[in-house]
Design a protein around this nucleic acid. Structure first.
Length: 701
DNA sequence: AATATCCGTATTTTT
DNA sequence: TACGGATATT
């Protein structure tokens, strides 16, 4: 049946009379009044404030389905999400309502992925060639470092910001659209003296990127914005979407808000969904202002609030609400739930990190025996390495797990190497890729690599269009290089020559024949890493072009190595370990939050300002609200310092400040160590220093 | 003189 | 993983 024929509601009723049940009816019957209002809102701007677990995904999915059902062509719907996973989830659900083939045409993905897609087609309008390659954050930092070194800053006596700081400052400036001087003053005051020199570095950074046809993450957004302002292309792109929907709007930045405004110059159909209480990405220049100012930027916006929580039991919500109730800024919503379940969240005080790891393992297994599979349980923590000890313990006990966040597949040196080969083939002007590849050869350090690169580029002064042909030149004529490298240089030449005419998977295969021997000498645990390369090769096989393969890999990197693993592994049951940031939008039956100590949550790195602490509080809130039925929060009393071989240097932790006495009252308090241990510990603490004794009293209650 | 190599140490969160 | 600093190698 052709649903697109029935555009008007009256027509739906008509269909209802003659067909068993029109799809949109089925969908909407399931929604509460607020969700229904959001899903079926007509034309014009719509702001949905959706608290944690209030069925946001369901509502947005229903809205997509509803729009399609109303006759909006799916390819004229743009759904911007925070991650690829979120887009897939939402479109998957919408697909169940109106059919997969329809939904497959919807433009869905992250801002960056959509920008990439548009720029491949329309980039010429803003001077972006279609074969551009994308720099990830560490590539940017590397490029900054290259310039930094060339400028002599690495040998200079004067302190000058390091590459990561430079990249962070640059990105912050771009994403906030604030002048460099003010950015330094506000967020990097210790670098304020370097303003002028930094300006020079950034100018060179820009010039380099342009001549190499590479874009960094920020460029994707900047050029998308520019594209929208270009006379013809802008009109064309803005006009090609009837509806724009944005998820997690609280975590978008000024640049993204500008893009949306440009995108909606004529049509006013825009839906944004978000929760100001869950804003946790200000370090990426996201600003809650976007969501707060939405009604002003899009006058006449309808505001819908989703407050009924379907995820968590009342006792879990009570804790979460109590934590947010003590926030400086008050949020005018409070979640409530009708879900059955009385199990109170548990606050587990452990002696130390080791015991914490053991108790977490114990409880995970208890829940497993109770019938809750590992995949329905998650351990959440503030930073990637917080799970180190736990990982060891889980491995020891043969509990399989998958870790999200932390060190990613794409950041592994050998994966970056392979990607660099592919980047050369895709975009021979990508000097960063050349630089990396050349240094893999024997006797080739930064100096020689630079020299070879100079030869490949030919005589060329900055700013001047370069003759296309670093790769052609490399394949055609020998280069001057250290003797030690000459044999490998020939092999590299052959590998690149052969690979050029092959498809993605065959390319990786051919390049590996060159790379594997190099790599086995370069890295110690080569055996483990080889598996990654095999997986990379396999993954490449699922792509039609190398271009798609490598951009996808940089824009939506697999969150964990197991993302790449084949079906057999995925069918197994495994525990989820995740940073709280990566846990956004997810939910589990059982959630274990570990390291709930001040210094970890809030992180020591983020206690500089009241705003930062507020964000840490929201982060803790996000962690708590991931739990459906059981919530365990763990707190180790004692932290050992980095082992220097001697003694047992340690310090005493304080329970996170976000669990105040009032909040604590909502918890079931678990003591998992002997009273004796605790007494001994206390005595020791008292004896050690008066300061520790004071601290000790603070949590002694 | 220019690189390569080894060692110890620190590292927030991510598109 | 990347760095700074030291030493070894060409």
């Amino acid at each position: 049946m052709d649903r697109r024929a029935c555009a008007a509601p009256a027509c739906l009723v008509f269909v209802h009379m003659f067909y068993p049940e029109p799809v949109s009816r089925l969908v909407l019957a399931d929604l509460n009044p607020a969700q229904h209002r959001a899903a079926t809102y007509g034309d014009g701007p719509l702001l949905a404030i959706a608290g944690a677990g209030t069925g946001k995904t369901k509502t947005l999915a229903a809205r997509v389905a509803y729009l399609i059902d109303q006759g909006v062509p799916p390819e004229r719907i743009l759904l911007l999400t925070f991650s690829r996973r979120a887009a897939q989830e939402m479109l998957g659900r919408a697909g169940q309502m109106v059919g997969r083939t329809q939904v497959a045409k919807v433009w869905g993905g992250t801002f960056h992925a959509v920008a990439n897609r548009l720029l491949r087609v329309h980039g010429h309008a803003v001077g972006v060639p279609p074969n551009f390659t994308v720099l990830d954050q560490s590539d940017c930092a590397d490029l900054m470092n290259l310039i930094r070194t060339e400028q002599g800053w690495s040998e200079s006596k004067r302190r000058f910001p390091k590459k990561d700081t430079l990249a962070a400052i640059y990105s912050r400036t771009v994403n906030t659209s604030i002048k460099l001087g003010q950015v330094l003053e506000t967020w990097f005051p210790w670098c304020a003296d370097d303003l002028d020199d930094m300006r020079g570095v950034f100018q060179m950074y820009l010039a380099r990127k342009r001549e190499q046809a590479v874009l960094d993450y920020d460029d994707l957004l900047l050029f998308w914005k520019a594209l929208l302002q270009a006379p013809q292309a802008g009109e064309l792109i803005a006009g090609s979407f009837d509806h724009v929907l944005v998820d997690e709007y609280q975590d978008t930045n000024a640049l993204q808000a500008d893009i949306l405004a440009s995108l909606r110059r004529s049509s006013r159909n825009i839906t944004v969904v978000g929760d100001d209480a869950q804003a946790i990405y200000s370090f990426r220049a996201a600003t809650v202002k976007n969501i707060l100012a939405f009604p002003e930027r899009f006058p006449g916006a309808e505001i819908v609030k989703l407050e009924q929580n379907y995820r968590s039991t009342p006792p879990i919500l009570a804790v979460a609400n109590a934590v947010m109730g003590e926030a400086r800024q008050q949020y005018d919503k409070e979640l409530w739930s009708r879900r059955p379940g009385e199990a109170r969240p548990r606050l587990v005080t452990c002696l130390n990190e080791t015991q914490q790891a053991q108790v977490v393992c114990d409880r995970v297994v208890e829940h497993l025996e109770q019938g809750i599979p590992l995949t329905h349980q998650a351990v959440l923590f503030r930073t990637g390495h917080h799970s180190d000890l736990l990982e060891v313990e889980l491995t020891r006990r043969n509990v399989p797990f998958v870790k999200y966040g932390g060190l990613k597949f794409i950041e592994a040196a050998h994966v970056k190497d392979m990607l660099a080969f592919l980047r050369i083939l895709e975009n021979p002007d990508d000097d960063l890729a050349w630089f990396r590849v050349l240094q893999l050869l024997d006797g080739m350090g930064p100096r020689h690599a630079q020299a070879v690169l100079g030869q490949l580029r030919g005589q060329h002064s900055p700013g001047e269009a370069r003759p296309n042909g670093a790769l052609d030149r490399f394949l055609a004529e020998p280069v001057e290089a250290p003797v030690a490298a000459s044999k490998q240089l020939d092999e590299l030449r052959n590998a690149l020559r052969d690979a050029r005419s092959l498809g993605p998977a065959q390319r990786v295969e051919r390049l590996r024949r060159f790379y594997d021997p190099v790599f086995e000498r370069a890295y110690d645990n080569a055996a483990v890493r080889v598996r990654d390369l095999e997986q990379l090769e396999q993954l490449a096989g699922t792509y039609g072009t190398t271009r798609d393969f490598i951009t996808d890999l940089t824009l939506d990197p697999p969150a964990s190595t197991s993302d790449l693993a084949g079906p057999p592994l995925l069918e197994e049951d495994y525990l989820i370990l995740s940073t709280i940031h990566s846990a956004k939008g997810c939910e589990w039956d059982v959630v274990h939050v570990i390291h709930a100590a001040d210094g970890n949550i809030p992180s020591d790195m983020a206690t500089g300002s009241a705003e930062e602490i507020d964000e840490e509080r929201r982060l803790f809130y996000v962690a708590l609200t991931r739990a459906k039925d059981w919530l365990h929060v763990y707190f180790p009393l004692r932290y050992y310092h980095r082992r220097h071989g001697r003694g047992d240097a340690h310090s005493y932790a304080q329970l996170t400040r976000f669990i105040s006495p009032a909040v604590k009252a909502h918890f079931e308090l678990d003591v998992v160590y002997d009273e004796q241990d605790s007494d001994a510990l206390e005595a020791e603490a008292v004896a050690r220093t008066p300061v520790d004794a004071l601290l000790n009293q603070l949590w002694a209650d």
